[in-house]
């Protein structure tokens, strides 16, 4: 199997994280769900942070609400400096796990807490790998 440019850019930093990023390139958010207590989490931990039970892999529906966000105006490297201002949000997925990712499709000044969003997965390797947009928005 050959890997895409996007996947090559995202994987290889940590073997435990590679599966997550491979799924993103395939257009899905991979979660871990505890087989004992049902807690879901994004970080690929070997056991559940609630009860130390064994996790299983599940896919998220990719929908959730915006818990908080930052509007980045000053970037600390050149690549990101070309993108400012941009929004990184903390999204509480409906499965109960929190994820950080870009938020687009809403004027940063008009963002509100707990607004409903859904994940999109830009194929362009020059774009961020996960972009949350308003749930009702048609564009990807």
């Amino acid at each position: 199997m050959t890997i895409s440019a996007a996947q090559a850019q995202l994987t290889g930093t940590d073997p435990d994280a590679d599966g997550f990023w491979a799924a993103v390139v395939g257009g899905a958010l991979q979660l871990r769900r505890c087989t004992r207590c049902g807690t879901c989490f994004v970080l690929p931990l070997p056991s559940c942070p609630e009860c130390a039970g064994d996790p299983e892999l599940v896919l998220s529906e990719g929908r959730g609400s915006l818990y908080t966000w930052v509007v980045v105006h000053h970037a600390f490297d050149e690549e990101l400096a070309r993108q400012v201002p941009y929004v990184v949000g903390a999204v509480e997925l409906d499965e109960g796990a929190r994820i950080f990712a870009r938020v687009e499709g809403i004027d940063p000044a008009a963002l509100e807490a707990d607004v409903r969003v859904r994940a999109t997965y830009p194929a362009d390797p020059d774009r961020p790998p996960i972009v949350f947009v308003p749930e009702e928005s048609a564009s990807a």
Partner: peptide, 27 residues
């Protein structure tokens, strides 16, 4: 491992991490 879940989104520095806390606190 944790940075691998921040940097690809452009979440790279402490001012940004803690701004998330500050925003939710103010909300």
């Amino acid at each position: 491992l944790a940075p691998a879940f921040r940097y690809p989104h452009g979440l790279t520095a402490y001012p940004q991490f803690i701004a998330m806390w500050a925003r939710r606190f103010l909300i």
